[in-house]
Design a protein around this nucleic acid. Sequence first.
RNA 1: GGGGGGUUAGCUCAGCGGUAGAGCGCCUGCUUUACAUGCAGGUGGUCGGGGGUUCGAUCCCCUCACCCCCUACCA
Length: 890
Amino acid sequence: MPENLSPVEPEDSARKLPKTFDPASFEGRWYSLWESEGRFQPNGPDGSPRFVMVIPPPNVTGKLHIGHAYGRTVEDILARWKRMLGLRVLWVPGTDHAGIATQMVMERQLAKQGLDRRTMGREKFIDRVWDWKREAKDTIQSQMRKLGCSPDWTRERFTLDPDLSRAVRHTFVRLYEEGLIYRGRYVVNWCPRCETAVSDLEVVHREAEGSLYKIRYDVAGIPSGAVVATTRPETMLGDTALAIHPDDPKTAKLRGRTATLPLVGREIPIVEDAILVDREFGTGIVKVTPAHDANDFAVGQRHDLPAIVVIGPDGKMTAEAGEFADLDRFEARKRVVARLTEENRLVGTEAHRMSVGHCQRCDTVVEPYLSEQWFVKIQPLADPAIRAVEDGTVRFVPESWTKTYFEWMKNIHDWCISRQLWWGHRIPAFTCPNGHLTVSETDPPECPACGASPLVQDPDVLDTWFSSQLWPFSVFGWPEKTKDFEQFYPTDVLVTGYDILFFWVARMIMAGLHFTGVAPFSTVHLHGLVRIGGEKMSKTKGNVIDPLEAIAEFGADAVRFTLASAASSGATVSVERGRMSGSRNFATKVWNLAGFALGHIDGSPEVGDLASRELSVPDRWILSRLSGAARAVNRHLSEFRFDEAAGAIYSFVWHELCDGYVEMVKPVLAGREGDDAARDTARGVLRRCLEDSLALLHPIMPFITEEIWEKTTGRRGTLIASPFPTGEGIPVDADSEKTVEAVREIVTRVRNFRTERGAAPNAPVSLWIAPDSPDRELAASLEPVSGLLRHLARLEDLRFEAPPADPAAATRDVVAGVAVGLRVAVAASTEAGEKMDRELAALDEEIPGLRAKLNNPAYVEKAPPAVVEKTRRRLLELEKRRSDLSAGRR
RNA sequence: GGGGGGUUAGCUCAGCGGUAGAGCGCCUGCUUUACAUGCAGGUGGUCGGGGGUUCGAUCCCCUCACCCCCUACCA
């Protein structure tokens, strides 16, 4: 007998589910088992259909927050789902060295111990960071394990691993040789606290109230001089020109003259520049500081102006700043303004709001700074990446990000990739004593140009994102032609937050296309950012949710379910504690359902193929609903709608299986109703529903489902590798669905009826179902399920005949197209009377509207017939209800 | 300056051309033998304001208001 058909052993006490649901008691056990059995590694033969993802490698700066947990949960749901669908799944885990971020964290740590990296030296410092990195990596790994993530840990990677570093050097050299990497002196974004250059993307702009200072410069021969406007008066010390618009009559008299720089006394030319100068702004005269403003730098290039650096890399004024030397730049601003005032050169000051750039990492105001840096010429890389999205090679989900992507890609600027940091990939550029520059994959022993040695390597490191952009292929050992690269590249889906669309996703597309010739993935799922109760998480607000704490309190499955339910297509993912407990309750519900089901199905005979058995209406109904749920879950997962998928399985399990089917078949299972065959069938259906529900739920709630699976199937740890229900092969039965829905509505009506009458929940009620109902067929279909109605509604009497006409004998109503009569041995209370009056009033409002609608020829002609028919029926029901109600109210 | 998103029940959010939904909260019942982390029922919404298109709009178009995000070299 094949294993999967063997009857369940009744005497096995391990099949009993503990009374209380305690996730902590089994989560770790299952994880270890899965991992030790290699469940996370790609299964199946080489070349079989596969599904590959790489993790967005978290920074080794600390531990994961709930936002990471969200993204990883989404990935794990996909991985587990695809695995159960029979694909050869590989999910590659790993971490990112995160140059600037990690170095900053490390420096802070050292500062607490009174240490400084400069006094330590580069090597020692880096050793310390490696220690830190190992710790952080372990923390991250253990967090992901707790969460139940199923990446292939045997393939874990780190961006500074030797082979990934080789990929970095390889690509740097290749781009350099292709002329796509160049070195030069330009004005870049500089963080004076981190003392490094940063890219445009690493600058966060914020609006701030500033001042616009108007300063008068003397101009020989022009008594009124030249008044310039600036928000940064301290930079005037580095002015090497004034600029005017060539076509501006207002400033024409300044043409060809020179001005005297106040406080400094330097004579500077007045140049004409149509690009820089906006005639409408300020005075139409602009001070030009080539060393401290990117625009001014360009003017300097155009007009061959010198660049004088007056603010140093540490944010303090340089010796060039004369009397202001060594002052902090903001202090210098005040002092310059004070001195200008003294010298009567400050013509005016006005409030001016402006956008100020801050360092993404440390929030220090970024300084435009002239320095030698390495850049990637980006346009040649961007063009193919734009095309790949245009032609659908790469698809964004949600699709709306496509436009954002194009917007940025089409206005992209060269990328400054050098960082004056220690933690990262050192730039593979070497200079010989004679000044020859060599860029090389391996450290050259001597200068290839002149043979001189020793060569000195560029002290700078690369922007972290330079290595991250290679991640989807460097993790597979590229540029070596490894087996993994052949088998698993390109990947299928990339899941990440939209906040790194430009930082990472766009650059991966560019790099992937350029270096490997193919896009690194076909689908990018950009998800929203987690917010707690509508607010951004922040430690100061104290609304941070620690994933581990949440797991300890609610269980990993509940946390995962909450995150999946919170997913939406929007830009924010709102997570609340209330949701967590709701999910925990759901897990408990599943647990208790399983406990109940086990009590009935355990030891029951194998029922075999359900299709061959005589199924009751409830059986057919729940199987049909199961089929619908399975289809819905698959559809939603394929559309990355994890909220919808979670909702579909939730409402099926709770509201249909538990509240519906289980309640319907209790008498059958207990042997109070039906024969043994019916009972066995119900057991089989219950088993099928439970097991399929576990499977459907497994990608979202892996632990509890595996735990219960073992008890119901007797197979240990196999749910993870079991087929995912697709709904195919389970009969869909619209008639049974309709009948049961009607039963449920009528049952609700009976319960309401008791409440209306102020009767006890078990007060005897008589129910009439009129054969002559608006939906006669449906009414007739209720007769075979009369037992169901009696049981669920706790009826004293049920007749399939027209209810008595006398309102005192029965209250009449139409429910789901079925005309019913109700009677309870309790007189209508005043409360009930009031309620009826309210309903009557509501009917009086709705009925005329429906009549008007149907009397409108345009409506009847143009609306779809089904809609019109629905309206007609509705009107009929309401009118009937109204007449019965008013009869009841005398 | 450009671009995008949002405004739906007390809260957090789904829905998006045919009579408004979920979870949580709140109210009322309930020892209905899986589950009080439960069961049953209920309360609660001029779907931001104003126009338009349509037989019909929360959903499409225009406009206004208020939020949010991204992007940008305007001194």
